[in-house]
């Protein structure tokens, strides 16, 4: 009996995991750190052949309402789908594997994601495409490499036709109504536990849109500068042709958002043109969470408004 050739196949019954209860590590310590705090249902099947003493195997894993916790992207919940392995020993898969992710929260809650990928090995994958509905439009991640237990990856996200009205809701921006859509592509650097947005630029589509700000930031600003008061009056019913939103910072930490807004208000100075350079320094995550908290949050406004006197601008009061 020189070689033990033959085939074997292994199937699991549907396994149901609970945090604090039955966990994948009960099956094998080799998965520790990979599916931490696992929950939901998983079943797997593998077909092994031993040919000339050389083992190989194919198989699949299917999950339903599956979830786990990760250092890099936070909680992953509601995962459904089936992954085919063309080499179970190497844990590699053919291209085009697809799973749906109910919720993932790297700083901004993303729901109903569809992820297409290929597993290269236990530690490397190719993200083929990932798409989430978001703020009335879509966030789409293009093709990029992903290191499974890695410490740093960069993926490019395209924001497609995000509606300003929905963005105001997602970030619970108080006293603000807005209409119009913005789009743009930007890199997101996933480094350790942080997801950094690197100088994202979202620009309004060419129809432009409207903004109506009726908050109390106006009062504190207007005292400072009569032109600022003028500007805030304009912002109460503003029609913009140019809107550029820049975001830079840590999704789960501090974010700096700057906006360039150009347009006019029919009610102010017969529709004279205004340009706003608005800088918003905020903890994005706090904004999002403020909506979910029962207690109303009294926002601390620290507003600095100053008008930029253009070189040869004649202000309406004085004429030569």
């Amino acid at each position: 009996l020189d070689t033990l050739d033959g085939t074997a196949n292994v199937s699991t019954p549907p396994l149901v995991f609970q945090p604090g209860g039955f966990q994948p590590t009960a099956l094998s310590e080799r998965v520790r750190g990979f599916l931490s705090n696992a929950q939901g249902e998983l079943s797997a099947h593998a077909d092994f052949t031993i040919d000339g003493g050389k083992p190989s195997g194919t198989g699949w894993v299917s999950v339903s309402n599956f979830g786990f916790d990760t250092l890099r992207l936070g909680a992953v919940r509601g995962v459904n789908g089936r992954i085919e392995f063309d080499n179970v020993l190497k844990l590699s898969s053919p291209p085009g594997q697809e799973v749906r992710i109910g919720q993932i929260n790297p700083g901004i809650p993303l729901e109903n994601g569809l992820i297409a990928f290929q597993l290269i090995s236990a530690t490397e994958a190719i993200l083929e495409r990932a798409q989430w509905p978001f703020a009335g439009g879509h966030l789409v991640a293009g093709r990029s490499d992903w290191t499974i237990a890695g410490t740093r990856d960069v993926i490019r996200i395209s924001a497609e036709a995000l509606s300003l009205t929905s963005l105001v809701d997602v970030f619970n921006l108080p006293d603000l109504k807005a209409e119009g859509t913005v789009s743009g592509t930007f890199p997101v650097e996933i480094a350790g536990p942080n997801a950094y947005i690197r100088d994202a630029v979202l620009t309004a589509d060419d129809q432009g849109g409207t903004i109506a700000y009726t908050g109390k930031a106006a009062e504190s600003a207007s005292k400072a500068d009569s032109r600022a008061e003028l500007a805030f009056n304009a912002l109460r019913d503003f029609r913009f042709s140019v809107l550029e939103i820049r975001a830079d910072g840590n999704l789960s930490g501090d974010m700096l958002i700057t906006m360039k807004l150009a347009g006019y208000s029919p009610a102010v100075l017969q529709g004279a043109p205004f340009v706003f350079n608005i800088g918003v320094d905020s903890k994005l995550m706090q904004l999002i969470r403020s909506g979910q908290r029962a207690t109303g949050t009294d926002w601390l406004y620290d507003v600095v408004a100053e008008s930029v006197a253009a070189r040869n601008q004649t202000t309406p009061e004085n004429t030569e």
Partner: peptide, 20 residues
């Protein structure tokens, strides 16, 4: 003669939104 100024009135605005 002045109509509405063509040169836009430019306003710089810095808002810090923090928790009360």
């Amino acid at each position: 003669r002045l109509e509405a100024p063509r040169e836009p009135i430019t306003i710089n605005l810095n808002v810090k939104i923090d928790q009360e």
